[in-house]
Write a protein that binds this DNA or RNA. Structure first.
Length: 136
DNA sequence: GCCAACGTTGGC
DNA sequence: GCCAACGTTGGC
């Protein structure tokens, strides 16, 4: 199983929106690198949901409920894809960007290295480490 | 509000 | 194919 992190602006579409719908399409990704990661997602993979903007923190866990399919909003047929995510659970407490930056174990995260990437893989270690932080 | 990083567009 | 101009994202 692979592990992922997706970014979203909560003012536009946030963790709360996914929770209220329980399951929803994750679309609108218009970056090739991010698209390739979306295509790599498999049903059952776990996905951390991160809020960008004012509050920069990992807030919840979701699960891939449907592998990549053509993004319905891709009217020009450029090959953009979407996946479907199901809300799993909210972290006991959010793990902030600042906190992530302070951890040696998380220093290689793409979140830190490529600030504009909106879909990225995490190693199992990174994923577990963040979950541990949320327990503290 | 500013700026860095990065992607895209368009002229040549 | 190169590069300048411009737009967007996202952290601070």
């Amino acid at each position: 199983m692979k592990h992922w992190l997706v970014k979203t602006e909560p003012e536009t579409y946030g963790w709360a929106d996914l929770v209220s719908k329980k399951e929803d399409i994750w679309d609108g990704v218009r970056n090739y690198q991010a698209r390739n990661f979306l295509k790599d997602m498999a049903e059952g993979d776990l996905v951390m949901v991160y809020h960008s903007g004012k509050h920069r923190e990992v807030v919840g866990l979701a699960k891939v409920s449907e592998e990549s399919f053509p993004d319905p909003a891709d009217e020009e047929g450029k090959g953009w894809v979407a996946v479907r995510l199901a809300a799993e659970n909210e972290l006991k407490r959010p793990v902030t960007l600042q906190e992530i930056k302070g951890q040696e174990e998380l220093s290689e995260m793409l979140l830190l290295k490529q600030s504009r990437l909106s879909v990225m893989p995490l190693t199992a270690n990174e994923f577990d480490f963040i979950l541990q932080l949320a327990e503290k």
